[in-house]
Amino acid sequence: MRIWTVSIALLISTQLMAQEIPAVKFDGIEDLISEKSDKVKVINFWATWCKPCIQELPEFEKLNSDNQDVEVYLVSMDFVEDMEKVERFVAARKLKSKVILLDDISYDSFMSKIDKSWSGSIPATLIVDGRSGKKAFYEKQFLEGELSTVLNNFMN
């Protein structure tokens, strides 16, 4: 009986506590990239309107739950005016990876800081070793299984 109450309470609270999505300017992402950590940070740039981004999201979710050495950040490039849409999307898909909305349209100045080769299409993904600062950047959609291979190669 007690267990039931607790689990129901937990269930309700997790439903209510769908993740809060912070809206940040680019310096927030810069901090995330440069912050020292003992994990590998996988920072994916996506948007709710981007079909190939949505297609590859399960790969990132899987990585986030399966690999303890990795932290996945899903950086939404949706406009901040569409925050509700992003929140609904994240709740409906029950996304567990940390979602951040990048509320900054000074694209020309910040994109080259992510990677000089980035022409601006999404999906795009930056992988950063939190210890060494080593980076790898991919302006592409990851197909099934591809992300874990890329990551294994990055870590070894």
């Binding site: 020309d108 022409s119 299409s121």
Partner: peptide, 10 residues
């Protein structure tokens, strides 16, 4: 040159 977001070519 000037960068901006866009949809990747399919």
């Amino acid at each position: 040159t000037a960068n901006a977001v866009g949809c990747s070519i399919k």
